[in-house]
Amino acid sequence: MIRKVFPNRNVALLFYGQLISHIGDSLYLIGLMWLVLELTGSKAAMGIVAMISYLPMLLFGMFAGILVDLVDRRRVMLASDLLRAITVGLLAVTLGLEATTLGVIFVVSFALSTFSTVFNPARDALLPELVEREQLLRANALMQVSHYAAMLLGPALGAALLGSLGLIHLFTFDALSFVASFFALTLLRTKVSARIQIGAEVLRGHFMEMVRYIHHDQRLRFMLGLTAINNFFIMGPALVGTPIFVKEVLQRGAASYALVESALGFGMLAGAFVTNLASRYMNKGRILLVGIIGDGLTYAAIYFCHSLEALMALVALHAVAIPMIVVPRTALVQEWVGPEHRGRVFSLLNVAVVGMTAISNAAAGWLAERMSSAALFGIFGVFATLCGVVGWGYARLRNA
C-alpha cells in the first residue's frame, strides 16, 4: 500500500514527519492568535504578532537559500526542527508559570520563524534529489497533502484540547511534533553534502549570482512578483481577520475558530485531489492562475457571510484553491531551476510568500481597527482576484 501511495521510503518518511509537524503548527497558530486576543483585546497587537511571525523571512530569507545551497540540506532541516522544539517548549513553560507577556510572545514568534526560514527551502530543494523528475508533481502533492490533512486534523484536535486541557497544551503538542519530525529526518537515506566554509564574501557572491539568475528569467520574475502581490491581499485577512470575524461578527469563541480552521484543512485536502484531477486536462500555469482567481473570489464572498456554517463553507471553498496554487507553482520552479540554484530560488519564493505575509498581517491589523473584518475580506478578496486576471494575460505563465 505504501509503495502505491509514495514514490519511495524517503518520501514516506518525509510525509509522515511533516504531517505530525504540520498538525503541531496548526495548533500553535490557533493558540497564538487566540492567546494574543485574550491577553490584549487589541486587533493591532494581533497584526503585530502575526507580522513578527513572518518578519524573519523578509530579513533572512534570501541568505537562508544561499545556506541551503552550500551545506547539507538534511542537516539544516534537523537543526531547524530541534531549535523550534526548544522555542515552542519555552512558550509552554512561561504559560504554565503564568509569566507569558506580549514581549515573550514577540520573542518566541520571531525566534520560531527565524528557525523555520531555512526549513521549507531546504525541504523543497531536497525533494528533487529523492524522486525522479516525472514523480515531482506527485511528490509535491504529497507534501501539500501532509499540510492539508494536518489543517483538518489539527484544529479538531485543538478544539478538544481547548475544552479539556487549555491553551498551554496546544504549544506542548507543537513542541513534541518538531521532535517527531526530527526523528523522521534522521531515518532519511541521502548523500551527505561536503561541508563548506561560509564567509561574508561567499554569501555576497552567491547572493549576487541569485539576483543575476532571476533577472535573466522573465518567467520567474513575473511569477515571484505575482505571488508576492497576491499574498499581500490574502494572508492578512486569513490570519488576522478570521479570528476577529469569528469573535466580533459571529459572536463565537475559540472552539468555533478552531472549527473554521478545520474547514480550511478539509478544503485543502479536497483541493489536492482537485489539483491532481485538473493536471490531466490543464497545464501547470493554468491550474495556478485558476487557483489564484478562485482564492480571491471566495474571500470576497465572506463580506456577505452571517453564520458560522456559511463561513466554514466559504473557507472550505477558498481552501480548495490553495493547492491549485502551491503545487503547480512549486513544480514549475523545480522544473525551471537547476539544482545549483534551487535552494536560493525557493528561499526567494518563500520571501515572496511569507515575507509579504508579514506586511499583510500588519496592514490587516491596522485596517481592522478602522473597518469591519467583513469589509476587510471583501476589499482584499477583490484585489486578490484581479491578481489572477492579470496573471492570465501573461502567456508564458498561462501556457507553462
Rank of each mutant, 00 (worst) to 15 (best):
V108H: 11
M62N: 06
F15L: 14
A254C: 10
R84A: 00
F6K: 10
Y303P: 09
R75L: 12
R84K: 06
I196N: 12
G271I: 15
S21K: 06
S21C: 15
A228Q: 00
M62Y: 03
A238F: 15
G103K: 08
A263K: 00
L90I: 14
E340H: 12
F178R: 01
V131S: 13
N120H: 15
L226D: 02
T385E: 08
D217S: 06
A400I: 14
L35P: 02
V327Q: 02
V274W: 12
V354H: 09
D124A: 06
G296K: 09
L259K: 13
M33E: 05
N10A: 06
A278Q: 08
G378P: 07
M51K: 03
A358V: 01
H318M: 05
A149F: 10
L188E: 00
V68S: 01
F60S: 15
L127P: 08
V327A: 04
V351F: 11
V71I: 09
R204C: 01
L308M: 10
G205I: 07
V202A: 10
H341S: 05
Y281M: 11
T101D: 13
A99L: 07
L95Y: 14
A368S: 11
V320N: 09
A64C: 10
V326K: 06
D124Y: 09
S116C: 14
M151D: 04
S26L: 07
L224R: 04
F232V: 15
R138A: 11
D81R: 09
S42L: 04
S347I: 12
S42V: 00
L170I: 15
A184P: 15
T100D: 13
A79T: 10
F346E: 02
V345Y: 03
V327W: 08
I287L: 09
T190M: 01
L67S: 06
E209P: 07
S372D: 07
H147Y: 04
G205R: 02
Y394I: 10
Q18R: 11
I196L: 15
A395L: 05
L165P: 02
T94V: 13
G31S: 08
R189C: 02
F222H: 12
T114G: 02
L226H: 08
D72I: 11
Q144S: 07
V345A: 10
L126G: 13
D25L: 14
A313F: 15
A375W: 09
I66G: 02
L137A: 12
I229V: 03
F6S: 01
Y28I: 10
L130T: 00
A200Q: 06
L70M: 11
M223V: 01
I2P: 13
F115A: 01
